[in-house]
Amino acid sequence: MTVSRSEAPLIEVRSLTKHFRLPGGWLTGKRRVLHAVDDVSLQVYTGEALGIVGESGCGKTTLGRLVLRLLDPTAGQILFDGREIAKLKKSELLPLRRQMQVVFQNPQQSLSARLRVADIVAEPLRTVGGIADDQSRRRVLGLLEQVGLGAQHLDRYPHELSGGQCQRVAIARALALDPVLLVLDEPTSALDVSVQAQILNLLVDLRQRLGLTYLFISHDLGVVEHVCDRIAVMYLGKIVESGPGKEIFAAPGHPYTQALLGAIPSQMSRRGVNWLCCRVMSQVRQPAIWLSIPHPVPVGTGYLPD
C-alpha cells in the first residue's frame, strides 16, 4: 500500500514542544515540569499512515492532541497543508476542524451516554456542517453503512452497543465532515482481539476508499505495523526512531525500540511459533534491560500524564 507522495506534506511538525507544569511544588519553591513532547519534528504526507508508538507517558497522546490543536504547544510549529496553525486562536481554528478528526481509545466514553447513535453521528453535520435535519438522517445512514452498521442502530444508545460497535459509531462521526486527516488515538486497545481485527480491517479499508491520511497512535507495535506505512517510536517525549515498519521490525536501531519490540509477548502464526516469539524468549531471560529504563517523572509523584 505505497502511496505516491505529493510535494508538500499534509502535516509538518517542526521542533514541537509541550511542557506541563506538574501540580504541587509551590510550597518547596521547586516547579517541576514534565517534558511531554520535546523538540519533535515529523511529516505526514497526504494519503499516508504514520504510526506513533510508545509506552504510556511517552507523549504520544499529547502529540496527537497538539496536532489537532486541542492543546496549545509550548514551542514549535505545526503546518497543516502548508499553513502554520500552532498559534491560531480557537475561533480561527473552527473552519480547520472539519478537516481533521479524532477517534479515541475508549469507545464507550467517547460517545455521550445520553444521545442516540443517530444524534451522535448527526452532531457534526448539524452543528458544524449546517445540514438540515431531514437531510442529515440520510447522510447519517450512509455513514453508518460505510462503517458496517445499519438503520437498526440509528435509535440505540451507546450502552446498548458492543465495544466494537461503539468504535464504529465513533469512526462514522469522525467521517461525517469528510476530513482529510484522522488522528486515531489507541482506537483498538480497549477491544478484544477478534473485534480489534474487525476495526483494523475497517480502518485499512476506509483509508484506501476515501484516501484518508492517518496519524495512528498506539502502544502496540504489531497493530501499528499492520495499519501504517511508516512508524515513529517515541520515548520520553522524543522521537527516537522512525522509518518503514518492516525496517524497524527487521533491524530496530534504538535500544528502546529493541526493548519495545522484544517486550511484545507476541504472536504466533498459524504455522507455529514465529520469529517474534523467539525474540521474546531471549529478551525475557535478560531482564536487566527493563530496569534501566527511566521514567519521565521521578517515581512517587503519582502523576500519570497519559
Binding site: V102, Q105, N106, T127
Partner: peptide, 27 residues
C-alpha cells in the same frame, strides 16, 4: 472526557458543547 474532546475537535461551539454534552450528563 473523550466525547467532549471529540466535540471540540469537530469544531462544535462551546455553548453547544455545554448544552448538549455537559448539562445532560450532570442530570
Amino acid at each position: 472526557r473523550y466525547f467532549v474532546e471529540a466535540a471540540h475537535s469537530m469544531g462544535v461551539r462551546e455553548p453547544v458543547i455545554v448544552a448538549r454534552h455537559i448539562l445532560p450528563n450532570c442530570l
